[in-house]
């Protein structure tokens, strides 16, 4: 069965300051939606509104045509949530916590045992599951976090900054887990790391200063920027001049005394030595942020 998520007119103010205004988006079927935005753009606030931890000034969230914000029972049963800093009490074991979440989600003993066994195996938690949470590494904490979010087969899973604080190996591993569970539910992931999004997201939403600036698919985003990104290798002395005239979006070292740059140029009026290139997702994101 197809799942349907509809977010309608969400606005949120904090002390008369607009944090989110008029947030609308919808998604059907299973897959991963990436919510991309710089720090302070309102991503975590939006995530907390979607899981009922904050009350929006206006708007509603419909999951399979059911409003979930006014019905906590429904929300907890239908939604899985992994907050940015997933913490539980240090003296509780992972097993105790998963068992607690199973109880909350109304699983009977048999279902509970089956589900926990499945999750422990899926997320490679068997070596730590009976240990105190306080002894877990960052990677194990995230794995336990995603495991608890999957209890009760939620139709919608919300994950805030999934790879923050993880080392490169753990990030890779975690991205693989997320790509896997994206085949079972709608997953909304918020991040400011473009690499996370490029790995597994079907749909991308860019949030900037509390407003959606892009809502579409990855290729659409790249297409908008296509033809506006140039790359060239310049002498280091020319760097300031280029910086004055163009927005530099990527920079890497080249041979001695030279630097490789990617710049945005919307009117084709570019210096010699620069050629048009196919933009990456990160280039497209930076372009949107710069607008």
């Amino acid at each position: 069965m197809k799942n349907q998520l509809k977010v309608e007119n969400i606005s949120f103010n904090y002390l008369n300051k607009k944090i989110l205004s008029d947030i609308n988006f919808e998604y059907e079927d299973r897959g991963v939606i990436g919510l991309l935005g710089p720090n302070g753009s309102g991503k975590t606030t939006l995530m907390r509104i979607l899981v009922g931890l904050k009350t929006p000034k206006t708007g509603q969230v419909l999951l399979n045509n059911k409003s979930i914000l006014n019905n906590r029972e429904e929300l907890v049963n239908m939604v899985g949530y992994l907050p940015q800093n997933f913490e539980i009490y240090n003296y509780i074991s992972g097993l105790d916590f998963l068992s607690y979440v199973c109880d909350i989600k109304g699983l009977n003993n048999e279902e509970k045992k089956e589900k926990i066994d499945y999750l422990v195996e899926k997320f490679n938690l068997s070596s730590v599951i009976k240990k105190r949470f306080g002894s877990y590494s960052g990677g194990y904490k995230r794995r336990l976090g995603i495991a608890q979010a999957m209890i009760g087969n939620p139709q919608f899973i919300i994950i805030d900054e999934p790879t923050v604080g993880l080392d490169p190996e753990q990030r890779f591993e975690f991205r693989q887990y997320l790509a896997g569970i994206g085949k079972e539910s709608i997953i909304l992931i918020s991040t400011h790391i473009v690499e996370d999004i490029s790995f597994y997201c079907d749909k991308i939403i860019i949030l900037n200063q509390g407003k959606i600036t892009f809502d579409g698919y990855r290729d659409d985003l790249i297409e908008i920027v296509d033809g506006k990104i140039y790359e060239g290798i310049i002498n280091i002395e020319e760097y300031d001049k280029v910086k004055e005239n163009f927005r530099i979006i990527e920079q890497s070292g080249s041979e001695r005394g030279k630097v490789k740059l990617r710049v945005i140029c919307e009117d084709n009026n570019i210096s010699d030595g620069f050629t048009k290139v196919k933009p990456s997702l990160e280039n497209a994101y930076v372009y949107f942020q710069a607008r």
Partner: peptide, 16 residues
């Protein structure tokens, strides 16, 4: 311990 870390966030989420 609820507030010294971030445990309160996930526990609040699971309150029905």
């Amino acid at each position: 311990e609820d507030y010294i870390g971030n445990a309160y966030e996930i526990l609040t989420f699971y309150n029905k």
